[in-house]
Write a protein that binds this DNA or RNA. Structure first.
Length: 652
RNA sequence: GCGCCCGUAGCUCAGCUGGACAGAGCAACGGACUUCUAAUCCGUGGGUCGGGGGUUCGAAUCCCUCCGGGCGCGCCA
């Protein structure tokens, strides 16, 4: 609501300045005044006008304030120093805010936006780093949907890569297990593989010649036949299902899982390779160190020397980037071939996840891919490879798709020194001197996602048991789970993308202060007011209350004096900033902005809650007004939390 | 060596495209529960915004430079 008023004000001031001074404003952007006494929207353009008008900014601001014709939703305009400050009409604002919060969400429209996230190698359990990726991508997807875009969430499965091969080598050569025996391994299979993978890496390290097993396994997997290949498929499918369950626990879901094996077997790569050769986007190297390879030439950027990136190795196999280019082309609908799909997983709410599959029914009418823009949620360490992929599209002449390809980058989750100590990780002298310890799947070093979620649930269950002893076990567990997810998601979202999270159990498991449970608690408190109100009042009292509310929405001006209360007004203003926060989050791909906005809203609500006791309020006009304010605030809070993927428990 | 990112309170971090006295959470200390749940609220202390220069009416924010730290630059992904 505030965003709308800000834009309208900007346009009005622009027109006014044009008429009065015959000048075109460069920037008329509205800002938030530092203090509420200064108004609701601040404009600094008199400073800009001062130069051309050769007058003091203060004079200009005064002249504008005195002569500007304020629209009906503006209470007044004041000059303060060189600023022009706008004060909104508060009763009108409350009514408008109420309307915008009551509006039903927009149905998806327009061209499809594809968000690719998670992309965990299907060879071991997911860890906290993967959670950050998934929660960022999922939240971004929610944000896009709330803006009315149609969105497709993809999760790419690298099922023919080195990491899966290594686990297969572990089963066959270290554990000497047959496929049937691997099938018989009990859950949690992803945990079993986590340890096995680290062991295999260690086994290689002790004797280089053992890498030959990996090479052979990799080749057999790519060929797609025989026991090795079937074991690889079993491993990756089972792990993918484990990942889907883990992510479901924290509220993350997917539409489709494209598999790398399909890109190879359905000859997507061959088609992309032909295109690249035809457009001369890649060239065959005759001699030098890259002899026999197909390479892409990358122009030197800002003084950088040009370089060559190998796309096809001298032995004819494709690199990861090569396959990624084919995948990116498919996402934009730039390949003629199409995948076949089958359902790989069904969520508890019966929603389906599809996966590319050669044995999928060819008559499945699923229009996956063909996006208009694509966001790849991948950590910042892969920036270089993402640039290569985009350059690939560009050199094939796909300028628009290249421009519509966005690398949604973010920094890694590392372990704080304290955390790695708690986990009993042995560190070298050099590692101890570092600010944090990098998570390493190869060394089996990290905090597993499910372990963390379990820990969070365990802790919140204890807290709930203390406070809600009357509830059933099931109810307590349901509440504890929501709190755990709230704590985890908020923790992963509150940091800016390019800030390394040094993971610390103390901070992640905290339920106080700037945390998910704080936000949930605020809404629960608001909801309690209305629940108590319903249970206290009989039918007649209920109707009387409703009539008073009706009166407020029909004649908000009758309550205008009560809105002069700055604590109330701060709360309404913050609730009105939601669209602005969404807009800002979208433009900067910064989910932390949205998180901070929601936190700030909850904070202001709690202040209001403390100073305005509603149910004991004797003055019925005041009570009616405060109820309207509380209701508006809880709706705004619930919406913001939903965007963050945080559900509100019925009690806490 | 080259490129990208970071350096703000004891700790963890905000500070949006430069704007009105630099904020939050945690930690510390002191207060507020017969009240709509204290997972809360109020108060106190704590900062030469890494150093230096520049642009500007105005710089934590933009530019240059130096210092410190992280990451990337594979016929790995």
């Amino acid at each position: 609501m505030l965003l709308r008023r800000a834009r309208q004000s900007e346009a009005l001031f622009r027109d006014f300045v044009r008429q009065r001074f015959s000048l075109e404003l460069g920037s008329a952007a509205a800002k938030s005044p530092p203090r509420i006494e200064f108004g609701d929207l601040a404009f600094a353009f008199p400073f800009e006008l001062a130069r051309s008008l050769r007058r003091a900014p203060r004079d200009i601001a005064l002249e504008i304030a005195a002569n500007f014709p304020a629209p009906p939703w503006m209470a007044r305009v004041e000059a303060a120093g060189g600023y022009v400050n706008v004060f909104l009409k508060r009763d009108r604002f409350l009514a408008d805010l109420r309307d915008s919060l009551s509006a039903s969400p927009e149905p998806p429209r327009g061209p499809k936006i594809i968000v690719e996230h998670t992309n965990i190698n299907p060879n071991k359990a997911a860890h906290i780093g993967h959670l950050r990726n998934a929660v960022l991508g999922d939240t971004f997807g929610r944000l896009l949907r709330s803006r009315g875009h149609s969105v497709e969430i993809q999760n790419y499965i690298d099922d023919t890569g080195v990491q899966v091969a290594d686990v297969v080598v572990g089963f066959r050569h270290l554990r000497k297990l047959s496929l049937a025996q691997v099938r018989a391994i009990p859950e949690p299979f992803d945990y079993y593989c986590w340890d096995l993978y680290a062991k295999v890496r260690d086994w290689y390290r002790r004797e280089d010649s053992r890498l030959e097993h990996r090479r052979r396994t990799l080749r057999e997997i790519e060929e797609g036949e025989g026991e090795t290949s079937r074991m690889a498929e079993h491993v990756s499918l089972r792990i993918v299902n484990a990942h889907l369950r883990t992510m479901w626990r924290v509220g993350v879901r997917y539409d489709v899982l494209p598999r790398e094996s399909q890109i190879l077997r359905e000859r997507f790569w061959d088609e992309a390779f032909d295109q690249l050769k035809q457009r001369k986007a890649i060239t065959h190297v005759a001699d030098g160190p890259n002899r026999g390879c197909w390479v892409m030439r990358l122009p030197g950027e800002n003084g950088q020397p040009a370089e060559e990136k190998i796309i096809v190795r001298s032995d004819g196999t494709v690199t990861y980037v090569g396959k990624d280019i084919a995948y990116q082309l498919w996402k934009f609908g730039l390949l003629e071939k199409s995948f076949r799909y089958r359902v790989v997983h069904r969520y508890p709410d019966r929603d389906e996840v599809w996966m590319t599959s050669s044995d999928g029914a060819s008559d499945v009418e699923k229009d996956f891919g063909r996006g208009q823009s694509v966001y790849n949620v991948i950590d910042v360490r892969q920036s270089y490879l993402q640039r290569v992929v985009v350059h690939g599209l560009r050199s094939l002449g796909h300028e628009v798709p290249a421009d519509q390809s966005t690398h949604f980058s973010y920094e890694m989750v590392a372990l704080s020194q304290k955390c790695s100590q708690e986990l009993g990780i042995e560190l070298s002298e050099a590692d101890r001197a570092r600010p944090y310890v990098e998570v390493s799947g190869r060394k089996g070093l990290g905090v597993k996602a499910d372990d963390l979620v379990d820990k969070l649930i365990e802790k919140s269950l204890q807290e709930v048991a203390d406070r809600q002893p009357d509830l059933t076990r099931e109810a307590r567990l349901r509440i504890a789970t929501r709190i755990a997810v709230g704590a985890l998601r908020y923790f992963l979202l509150k940091y800016a993308r390019n800030s390394v999270i040094a993971f610390d159990f103390g901070e992640a498991l905290s339920f106080e202060g700037e945390t998910g449970p704080y936000l949930q608690y605020s809404v629960v408190r608001a909801n309690n007011i209305f629940r108590k109100l319903r249970s206290r009042r009989g039918g007649a009292g209920q109707r009387e209350q409703e009539n008073r509310q009706e009166d407020l929405w029909e004649h908000p001006e009758r309550f205008a004096d009560l809105l002069e209360d700055d604590q109330i007004w701060k709360l309404l203003l913050q609730a009105g900033r939601s669209e602005g926060a969404i807009e800002q989050s979208f433009k900067t791909l910064e989910m932390s902005y949205l998180a901070k906005h929601a936190f700030s809203l909850a904070q202001i609500f709690n202040i209001f809650y403390h100073s305005h006791h509603i149910l004991s309020q004797k003055d019925s006009r005041k009570q009616t007004c405060y109820l309207a304010v509380a209701d508006t605030a809880r709706r705004a809070m619930t919406r913001s939390l939903a965007l963050l993927g945080i559900e509100v428990p019925e009690r806490m």
